Amino acid sequence: MLLTAASAVVACQSGGSSPEPASTAALPSAAPTPTPQPTRGKDAILAIYRELYRVGPQAERALAEQRRAILEPVVTQPLLDTMLKGIEALRARGRVTYGYPILHTFDVQIRGTSAVLHDCQDGSKGGQADYRTGKHLTHGMPGTHMIAAFAKEADGGWRVAKVDQLDTPCSPDT
């Protein structure tokens, strides 16, 4: 499976690292209030990429019918459906993600209504855990090279459209 949602993105797709800690007991009752985001340039791209790793775990722990509303302010197709399917598969296996990757973004390129960034993230403090017990079952790795693609939507906001994990490790120092 490719990537899912930033938290669920990496955890569901690659089976490795994942984002943001959250308790396994509490489920949100409604879509979270999005964090205000810059609307222009590189700052907007970086902000929405960070937001992906905040809302991914929230969607993962939400009721199935609430997940799309949580993700839509941040994610667009094809990543949206990929994440929803990945979260469903993760939960069907009795798993959730834990932790949050340390992001080392670089090489942000914006061309009209599309953008790409690279991230040499350290996912070693996150992974997958048993939903009921919280026992950590997997963990991510440092030097995970991610490439995220973005689309500028009709409302003027940027959304993450795709996240891929490269096989070749990276170093945040290079």
Rank of each mutant, 00 (worst) to 15 (best):
G94Y: 05
Q77W: 01
R95H: 13
I70G: 03
T97Q: 08
D81L: 08
R67M: 05
R111T: 13
S114L: 08
T76C: 13
G112N: 13
R111G: 08
Q109A: 15
L71A: 06
G86W: 05
L80A: 07
K85F: 04
I70N: 02
I102K: 11
E65Y: 08
Y100E: 11
L71D: 02
L80D: 01
M83Y: 04
A62D: 03
R93W: 00
L90Y: 01
R95C: 05
A89K: 14
I102S: 10
P73Q: 06
L90S: 09
Y100W: 02
E88P: 01
Y98L: 05
V108W: 11
T97D: 04
A62F: 04
E60M: 11
D81Q: 15
T82D: 14
L90A: 11
R95Y: 01
E65A: 11
L71S: 06
Y100T: 12
V116T: 15
A89H: 09
F106A: 08
Q66A: 04
T97Y: 01
K85A: 15
I102F: 07
A69Q: 11
I70D: 02
G86P: 04
R68T: 14
P78A: 06
I110W: 08
G86M: 02
V116H: 12
V96S: 03
Q77S: 13
G99T: 10
V74P: 03
I102A: 11
K85G: 01
R91M: 03
R93C: 05
L79R: 06
L84F: 05
Y100A: 09
I70F: 02
V108P: 08
H104D: 12
Q77Y: 05
D107N: 15
G94D: 00
Y98R: 01
E65Q: 14
P78M: 10
S114E: 15
L84Y: 05
G86R: 01
P73M: 03
T105L: 05
Q77H: 12
A64E: 09
R68C: 01
Q66I: 03
D107P: 03
K85P: 00
G99H: 00
T105S: 05
A64F: 04
G99W: 01
R93P: 00
S114A: 09
A115M: 10
L63T: 11
G112R: 07
A89L: 12
P78D: 13
E60A: 14
S114P: 05
Q109L: 15
V108F: 07
G99N: 05
V108A: 08
R95F: 06
T76E: 06
R67P: 03
E65S: 15
P101Q: 07
L103T: 10
A64Q: 09
K85E: 12
E65M: 10
Q66W: 00
H104R: 09
P101A: 12
P73Y: 04
V74F: 06
Q66P: 00
G86N: 02
V75N: 02
E72R: 09
R91H: 12
V74Y: 07
L84C: 11
R111C: 08
